[in-house]
Amino acid sequence: MIRTVAGMTAQRWMGAALLLTLLGFGWGVPLVWSVDPAKQDLMLLLTPPDFDWADGVTLLGTDHLGRSLLTRLASAVRLSLGLALIGVVTAAVPGVLLGMVAGWSGGWVDRGLSLLADAVFALPGLLLVLLVLAIAPGSFIALYVGIALLLWLEFFRVVRAQVRRLRQAPAVQASLLLGLGPVLLVRRHLWPELAPVVLTLAAFGAAATVMATAALGFVSVGLRPPVAELGLMMTELLPYYEEAPWALAQPVAVMVLLGLSLTLLAGKDPR
């Protein structure tokens, strides 16, 4: 891969640029067009896009209930990326901390935490989210809890393995012999090695969140209408394929761009 500025590959820059564009779309659209994504207008069913920049309702066309596709897509992007962000952050913090503790201390702490991780890891990820979501169907909180429960694992496993390896490194051993404190050890020796891996995992976790949310929405066990969510929008628009192929194409295209931006940003799979 071509190395460029700040040690990021061209591939990662492309991912970051794409993600920024999507963020700008998601949060910028409501600033420019104040159209409610849930507002129906039955006189405007499946109006094709007219690219009239003055009118936010028909700029990208309307869906089968006459709702503005532009603001619905923006709302769906905000939902997916927002959920991905808080899911990844709440999973990364305990995942990294527990991984450090387990990898550093070893012994029964390590065995206990690893057993817990193995128990969660034993179930396929989507199944875990689905079971948690079954407790409170259609609830955003349940979806979030399920996703965070799934994501912390990857952080824990990778950080634990890295810390186990780093602990034996000569530099760390020397610092221990000098009696340097834990804060300095983490800041000086552990974090610089862990940071790139954690960032890659975060991007993969965000991609997994976006895909799981859409997949569950698509089979109607995820979030419920009238929430604008990419998977739900695809299910809703699928029956109108003949009349309005451009309508179905939009959530599909946004899904592809979202997934692509996060996968490119993640770079190489650390596993």
Binding site: F218, M255, L260, T263
Partner: peptide, 8 residues
């Protein structure tokens, strides 16, 4: 292919 969920 990796960037989109299988249902797409």
């Amino acid at each position: 292919m990796r960037s989109v969920p299988p249902f797409t």
